[in-house]
């Protein structure tokens, strides 16, 4: 009775696995092939390593090694903002979960409302605020809005509500610990899974955020990789006919774009793998499902 169930389970997972994986496989193979082979050859095939080196050469040469700067910028923005997010969101989620202060529900509701507000409408006021703070054109103009991560607050809130037994906290309080001690000694260590989750989602959200940096940053040297990639795309004739004649000399074609995209995904894949371990840890009771 176990075996067929196992088989069905695997079949379903594998089917979805193929759906998710095949386009990625294509993306991984794309830099190894020439532009012509991508269009006229078989969809999934390996080209050559030499082509990858060539693609990297072109990509790196684009606009004065700006690709490297884009990756560096994104790492800087994402890591800084995520650090702030962790320090701010986890205690906030905790406070909302165990708290009884007036306005608790208000903060929760407002957080939700703000998450549901379309970004297109918020861009202008945020721009004006940052301008009033004289931050336009500086990294903080990107890092500070990134650090506002209501999703993280909610993740922490739900985690603490569902997974933290109040007896544990009471036990600490009876021992004479103050609120801060209780948090640091009891609640925080238990929050490893949600810390990992928030770190992960915040980092990825910041890494992938396009709209805000696109609007706020004027200098292409400050772009994160998302805005940079769309610039790259716009320099490719096959994606942007308006580039007209001359697109060829910029040397960015599909293999280069594929490589640029792939390299931009690597940090996220790394963060994912590292967050996984912490995500998998069990809970109160200590059992670890590996």
């Amino acid at each position: 009775m176990r075996l067929p169930a196992l088989g069905v389970r695997f079949l379903i997972l594998a089917t979805f696995g193929i759906f998710f994986a095949v386009p990625i496989l294509w993306l991984i193979l794309a830099p190894t092939r020439t532009d012509k082979a991508l269009i006229m050859g078989h969809p999934i095939a390996f080209g050559s390593f030499h082509q990858v080196a060539l693609a990297w050469k072109h990509l790196d040469a684009f606009s004065g090694h700006i690709y490297r700067r884009w990756i560096a910028n994104t790492l800087y923005y994402a890591l800084s903002a995520t650090a702030i997010t962790l320090v701010v969101s986890v205690p906030a989620g905790y406070g909302l979960a165990i708290g009884k202060f007036p306005g608790r529900k208000l903060v929760l509701s407002l957080t939700l409302v703000v998450m549901i507000m379309p970004a297109a409408a918020l861009v202008l006021p945020i721009f004006l605020e940052l301008n009033a703070m004289h931050l336009i054109g500086r990294s903080l103009s990107v890092i500070l809005p990134f650090a506002f991560f209501p999703f993280g607050v909610y993740l922490a809130y739900i985690y603490y509500v569902t997974a933290l037994p109040p007896d544990l906290l009471d036990a600490a309080r009876v021992d004479g610990a103050g609120e801060l001690q209780t948090f640091l000694r009891v609640a925080l260590p238990l929050a490893k899974p949600v810390l990992a989750l928030i770190f992960f989602f915040s980092f990825v959200a910041d890494w992938n955020n396009f709209f805000l940096p696109y609007v706020l940053l004027a200098d292409s040297n400050q772009y994160p990789i998302t805005v940079g990639l769309s610039d790259l795309l716009a320099s490719t004739p096959s994606f942007n006919p308006s580039v007209g004649g001359g697109g060829q000399s910029v040397n960015i074609f599909k293999p280069e774009l594929a490589l640029a995209t792939l390299l931009a995904v690597v940090p996220i894949a790394i963060v994912f793998v590292f967050s996984q371990r912490a995500l998998v840890r069990g809970l109160v009771g200590g059992a670890v499902k590996e």
Binding site: S220, L233, A234, N240, P241, V243
Partner: peptide, 11 residues
């Protein structure tokens, strides 16, 4: 010099 996407293709 600032490079940008060129505002092409209906951007």
């Amino acid at each position: 010099i600032v490079t940008y996407d060129g505002d092409g293709n209906g951007a």
